[in-house]
Write a protein that binds this DNA or RNA. Structure first.
Length: 998
RNA sequence: GCUCAAGUGGCGGAAUUGGUAGACGCGUCGGAUUCAAAAUCCGAUUCUUCGGAGUGUGGGUUCGAUUCCCACCUUGAGUACCA
């Protein structure tokens, strides 16, 4: 009987679905294990072979853990709000809910055909009102909370209100806005309700604030930095302006320190933790206040090196700094304004990428040194960014290379405040070896002591204090989009009010158009039924708005990361209508044990989700403050693009031609389209042959005609050289030997229907191959549907794992799948012969047992180390060995099946069933490794001379070092190798190696 | 620039604590089977001037280095002057 993978796979997928084989229970005697994949966005293009890589790995792990006796939670769902569906809706008018539904159907079909052991009964979708009800609910909790630095956690806003009414805000130690005005309890109690709300908003964990955004009036939307190219929008090339907008923000900065510390408690990859650390960007130092001479102004700076304060020889402000216009002298005005204008034209990215060009301008103003009272010139320079810190720097050229370069460039003095250090060539930034000099009371001190003393003295002057700075900014939470969670917020006199949680969800209203409104409001501004009635507690028609009982609702929606910041907990109890999850469920599952996904989420989703988890921990909703214990990043699967070479004229040797460049350019345009097969092209190109030579060899009428019409007075046709333009061709038109289906290519690209082709000698056309990111636009996308159809899901699963280490990027090459497919056929034949089952009760041989147990050992180690590629090799070796051993023993073949089942579950289930089992193989226990089967009595010793292996010798493992040496020295090959010399030394490591030196 | 990965045959990759470099698979070549093909099976496959050389390059430590140390080069990813 043959291996009919399509039938087998369909049969078991149906069985698993019907029997709910992988449904997880929230109560069990078994230990729990929670394996989660990062939330997929169901895109319209469906899955390509790169997407399931992580899902296959997590599925193997989940199935392995079930064999190991765990109660495994392995859910899946969809992050189904998002921009692509909205964009599609704008173009076609189709409701995003409809297209999303369609896309999910495709995704589900594709996921099902790969045989994942998901518990689909727990599926969630972020765009489902029953789900986003809880996203809205968390938003309300954030609004109703403030961060108390004294208790170092979030607390109910009620505790803050009672503090205010009892003692005012003087003793409140909160994370809040910068510009808070002090008030007493009496004042608080006399404030109007609106005033009180206004103040509270400055403390809440989610708050309204004016934020600068990249506004594109033509598109009516806000753009991300990388959507802007050269100051205009990437799509359409419309102008973009900086605009202030009132938006919801999340006070994630309150959690900066805890987010940083928490990294030490979780088993995530170092590179990912490192990028989070960089993103949080903690720096310890001091804030210092400089007075500006002849002005009633001060400049605040943050510095990590207060010990170098006597080395300050100038100040640098960002060109955008608000003080610049106030303090610039009339003499310097022209220069400063010109410089500001020049900077404004450069994008922030440009300014940052360019470290080599030094530019700046002197404002003419001076600051006063806090200790020496000497005047310090104030400059502006675009190496200082307005957005970071205070947008101003105290410049210490002897201790900072950028300040040093700036000072050198503008001939600003560079005072040396370091003992015994030469700064004539570069700045000295080594904190550890710093001894301060020329610095009054700091002389002779090291970095640590000088820093402490400098801060102490600054505090005495009232011109500074010790300070810790974080780069992490509060996160903007509003989006001017339709397809996202609506806020549960209405406005009374411009002040935001939360809708009571019992009335959630506030569902997305219907709109006619998904575009922003004509007066620049977000798409929800198009909704006609989008007002809140506080009497009926329901959404009502806009025309009823009276601002006494019926009020306008918020028009923004939430960002993509809102829904994905809580889904991992919701999976624990996804259908609970009364709570976000029950206490029993969260206490049982606790947190994700293994999370697999891409590293592109390092500073987005993975940081925000940790923030929400910590917030929920503070509220006592979750038992642990990190949501994922272990995290692995799977590497990207790259595509192998295929190209055809189109010839073009090259200019390198214009010297050979008498004609003008213009004539050559004109000629280039007239060159007929010639597509040249890769091997021919590379041969001719590397031999530096000309177009003329090519034409001689291959009779191309069009080229002939072209060459005949070249003005030979201007051009030497014998020396017209050529190069190539590479044109992507769809990889589906190319076979495993890189041969192009030319007819299909012509049908796909009609513009190449009647052009000249140069084929290989055997009349085929070979494409050029190169590895690139897998994407539709590069025509290198490989669809798993076709692979499952032709080779089966088990082959796809094995091959994805076989490609290489999970965490590394690696190219996909469909041709290689025949290897693992051949293995599965061979594996099948080990169990099933032409006349039925081969398996019997034969007693296993020592070799059989050895093969089995070394396989158990290796596979178990591999899974624990997430080294799935090497287990596939191990299976192949085991299969090859057992086939050679003609093994038929059930005692061997049955455990082997369990080993394979996490990787290739369908074939394993089928054979398991044929062996007579009634239960799914997923219920079988993982085989136990027995080391006694691997004990060897002898070893094939490598005999090396000076570290180079020359031959091997079979020796008993019982031999002593001396016995081994005697045996080796007596060997004829040793004698031949030494040629009469006496060895200087003989190294013997029993059981490992013999090395003869000399 | 910085941070983190990575660099091994024609290709994907393997090599446990420093101990036989190239497992396993693809591809290629040769053979068997076949009227032929597919499928299947068997063998060979780092280079080589046959002495050797060889894991990006140059040094170092060691009896012995893909593995450890130093310097450099290249590629990929992330990040943006963190004051």
């Amino acid at each position: 009987m043959q291996y009919h993978f399509n039938d087998i796979e369909a049969k078991w997928q149906k069985y698993w679905a019907e029997n709910k084989t992988f449904k997880a229970s929230n109560t069990s005697d078994k230990p729990k294990y929670y394996v989660l994949d990062m939330f997929p966005y169901p895109s319209g293009a469906g899955l390509h072979v790169g997407h399931p890589l992580g899902y296959i790995a997590s599925d193997i792990y989940a199935r392995y853990k079930r064999h190991k006796g765990f109660n495994v939670l392995h859910p899946q769902g969809y992050d189904s709000f998002g921009l692509p569906a909205e964009q599609y809706a704008i173009q076609t008018g189709q409701h995003p809910a409809l297209t999303t539904e369609e896309n999910i159907k495709t995704y589900r079909r594709q996921l099902d055909q790969i045989g994942f052991s998901f518990d689909w009964s727990r599926e969630v979708r972020t765009s489902d009102p029953n789900y986003y009800k809880w996203t809205q609910w968390i938003f309300i909790q954030l609004f109703e909370s403030w961060y108390n630095n004294d208790t170092n956690k979030a607390e109910s806003i009620e505790t803050l209100i009672s503090k205010f009414s009892a003692e005012g805000n003087a003793n409140v130690n909160a994370v809040c806005d910068d510009n808070i005005e002090p008030f007493t309890a009496e004042q608080w109690n006399t404030f109007s309700s609106e005033k009180q709300q206004e103040i509270l908003l400055q403390y809440r964990l989610t708050y309204l604030a004016e934020t600068e955004v990249n506004w594109c009036p033509a598109l009516g939307t806000v753009l991300a930095n990388d959507e802007i190219v050269n100051g205009v929008s990437e799509r359409g090339g419309h102008p973009v302006i900086r605009k202030k907008m009132t938006q919801w923000s999340m006070r994630i900065s309150a959690y900066a320190e805890r987010l940083l510390q928490g990294l030490d408690t979780i088993d995530w990859t170092d590179s990912l933790k490192e990028s989070q650390r960089n993103w949080i960007g903690k720096s310890v130092g001091a804030s210092v206040t400089f007075k500006v001479n002849n002005h009633d102004e001060v400049i605040d700076v943050f510095t990590t090196r207060p010990d170098t304060i006597f080395g300050v020889s100038f100040m640098t402000l960002a060109p955008e700094h608000e003080l610049v216009s106030k303090i610039t002298t009339s003499e310097q005005k022209v220069e400063v304004e010109a410089y500001i204008e020049a900077t404004a034209k450069r994008s922030e990215r440009e300014r940052m990428a360019d470290v080599k060009t030094i530019s700046g301008a002197f404002t003419g103003a001076y600051a006063e040194h806090p200790f020496t009272k000497e005047p310090i010139p104030i400059w502006i320079g675009d190496y200082v960014l307005a957005g970071y810190g205070t947008g101003a720097v105290m410049s210490v050229p002897c201790g900072d290379q950028r300040d040093y370069d700036f000072a050198k460039h503008f001939n600003i003095p560079i005072p040396n405040i370091f003992e015994g250090v030469d700064i004539s060539e570069e700045a000295f930034a080594d904190k550890d070896n710093t001894i301060i000099a020329n610095s009054d009371f700091l002389n002779g001190l090291n970095y640590k002591k000088a820093t402490k003393l400098a801060i102490y003295e600054l505090e005495k002057l009232g011109q500074g204090e010790g300070k810790t700075n974080y780069r992490l900014r509060d996160a903007v939470f509003s989006r001017q989009r339709y397809w996202g969670e609506p806020f549960p917020v209405y406005y009374v006199n411009g002040m935001p009010q939360m809708i009571d949680a019992q009335h959630l969800p506030i569902t997305l209203p219907e709109v006619e158009k998904y575009l922003p409104t004509e007066n620049g409001e977000p798409p929800l501004g198009n909704a006609t039924v989008w007002a809140w009635c506080i009497e009926t507690n329901s959404v009502v028609s806009n025309d009823k708005i009276n601002n006494t009982t019926i009020f306008p609702l918020e028009l923004n929606t939430m960002p993509g990361w809102a829904g994905s910041s809580q889904y991992f907990n919701r999976y624990m109890d996804p259908h609970n209508e009364n709570e976000i999850f029950s206490k029993e469920a969260i206490d049982y599952w606790q947190q994700v044990d293994l999370y697999i996904g891409g590293s592109e989420h390092a500073t987005g989703h993975l940081l925000y989700a940790r923030f929400w988890q910590k917030f929920m921990f503070d509220l006592g909703l979750v038992p642990v403050d990190e949501f994922a214990k272990k995290l692995i990043n799977q590497g990207m699967i790259l595509g192998t693009s295929a190209f055809v070479f189109k010839l073009k004229l090259m200019w390198v040797d214009t010297l050979f031609h008498k004609g003008s460049i213009d004539y050559l350019k004109e000629l280039a345009l007239k060159l007929p389209t010639i597509l040249c097969s890769t091997e021919i092209y590379q041969k001719y190109f590397s031999e530096d042959l000309s177009l003329f030579d090519l034409n001689e060899k291959y009779d191309l009428p069009e080229l002939d005609n072209f060459l005949n019409n070249v003005d030979t007075n201007q051009v030497d046709i014998y020396k017209l050289s050529f190069g190539e333009t590479m044109i992507h061709t769809d990889v589906s038109l190319v076979n495993a030997s890189n041969e192009l289906d030319v007819e299909a290519f012509k049908n796909w690209r009609p513009e190449f229907k009647n052009v000249s082709w140069i084929f290989e000698d055997d009349n085929t056309y070979t494409v050029f191959r190169d590895v690139e990111k897998m994407s539709k636009s590069k025509y290198n996308v490989v669809n798993p549907d076709a692979i499952c159809e032709q080779y089966g899901a088990d082959s796809l699963r094995l091959y994805e794992m076989f490609l290489g280490p999970l965490e590394q990027a690696k190219p996909w090459n469909t041709a290689g799948i025949t290897g693992v497919h051949g293995f599965l056929k061979k594996f099948w034949k080990l169990y099933v012969g032409d006349n039925g089952l081969n398996v019997n009760d034969a007693k296993p041989t020592a070799d059989n047992l050895k093969t089995l147990h070394k396989t158990i050992k290796k596979v178990e180690e591999d899974i624990e180390n997430f080294s799935f590629n090497t287990s596939v090799s191990t299976f192949m070796i085991a299969c090859n060995e057992l086939t050679a051993q003609k093994c038929t023993s059930k005692e061997i073949l049955e455990p082997l099946l369990i080993l394979l089942s996490p990787y290739a579950p369908h074939i394993a289930e089928e054979l398991w069933n044929q062996l007579g089992h009634k239960e799914s193989i997923s219920t079988a226990a993982f085989p136990k490794f027995d080391a006694s089967h691997l004990v060897e009595s002898s070893k094939e010793y490598p005999i090396s001379f000076n570290g180079k292996m020359k031959f091997t010798m079979e020796l008993s493992l019982d031999l002593s070092k001396d016995d081994i040496e005697k045996a080796v020295m007596a060997h004829e090959k040793t004698i031949a190798q030494l040629q009469g010399r006496a060895p200087k030394k003989v190294i013997i490591v029993p059981g490992k190696i013999v090395n003869i030196v000399g």
